[in-house]
Amino acid sequence: MTTSDMSTSELDDNPIEVRISLDMVKRGIYVAPLIIAVAAMPWGGPGALSAAFALGLVFVNFLLAAALVSGAAKISTALVMAATLFGYLIRLGLILVAFLLVRDASWISRPALGATIIVSHIGLLVWELKYVAISLAHAGLKPARP
């Protein structure tokens, strides 16, 4: 078995994208009560519910992106290209559909929804950078300290 075969089978068994996404979702769940509480301050109950909905959208978006990329990478590297681009369109469409389904609901606060989507998406990504190892030895997440 060559080095590349070993790394490929290891990546297929435990895809990097899924590990990173699950780690981001885990951190997102930790800070979710804080985000919801902050959104509830200016926008009240609808703000809290909208923030929770936005967090759900962001989590699903991360997990879906990871599933699409890792699933495509298992089949072929060339398929990653197609899966990523069409996945991008599909996920944008899904977010739009999710918003259209709830836009007239009484519990929706659009500013809270928008602000939470942007802040949580970018915030979780920047936070995750601290735990990601860009090295050949530990691709993906940094190993836990003993």
């Binding site: 990546l11 990329v69 990478a73 590297t77 860009i134 691709a139």
Partner: peptide
């Protein structure tokens, strides 16, 4: 280097 590339690509 696929693991490293995929990490940076995903982010």
């Amino acid at each position: 280097a696929a693991g490293m590339v995929r990490t940076t690509m995903f982010l």
